[in-house]
Amino acid sequence: MARGKRHRVLPGFGLTCGYTLTYLGLVVLIPLATLFLKTSSLTWVQFWTTVTSERALFAYKLTIGASFLAALVNSVFGLIVAWVLVRYRFPGRAILDALVDLPFALPTAVAGISLCALYAPGGWLGGILQKAGVQVAYAPLGVVIAMVFVSLPFVVRTVQPVLADLDQEVEEASASLGARRWQTLRRVVFPSVLPSLLTGLALAFGRSLGEFGSIVFISGNMPGRTEIASLLILTRLEEFDYAGATAIAVVMLGMSFGMIFVINVLQTWSRRGAV
């Protein structure tokens, strides 16, 4: 269809576009600009010493490491969950399918206190794990568990539609050519879901990077042990060290924006792979 060539028949472009830009400017862009203006009040040396202090470096390492670990856990289990939900039929499947979105809808503070209560020493799961010598609450592992919870839906929900749209004739062809079932899965099914799996992994990782509410309860917030970057920013703010908080926030925002770029590239790839 001759899209751009047709003259604007529908009204309201000026109104809606103007409103959209004004609203975004006031609510999103001006506040974000403040952050970068505030950082520019620091000299480079000040900025550098703040963002590379030992405590900050540890917080990034924990945040990035735990986010990546949580994204990996969700990639493995998310792929299995998506496969089971799309291909198998069993009682309760529809309820489990609906429940996958729970972390999107459940307030993070609620997730935070219930995970903490579950995994605390003497809690339902914490008690069992304690006997096995594994400490989850108030340890780095607790941070990972909370991140697994909040980022759980991403891999399932990116892989699921791709699996559902997969042409089963290719699998039949593979089987009729003598491939064993696991060979078909590995060589035929897995490559076609790989782009969406990586997209899900990146989305899960990005979500965990900025997570706060579900982590602060279970982590115990010990500097140099379980203190994540978001919490360090909050601590600096509460000390009225605005410049320090801003500097670390800029580093974290830089990572988040980098993830937007990575996710866009991955999404383009998976869309091309789907065609």
């Binding site: 952050l35 900025g210 997570e211 978001s230 920013i233 909050l234 908080a245 924006f257 937007i260």
Partner: peptide, 9 residues
Amino acid sequence: SVSPIIAGM
């Protein structure tokens, strides 16, 4: 993409 803590800040 903005961490909630940063949003409040």
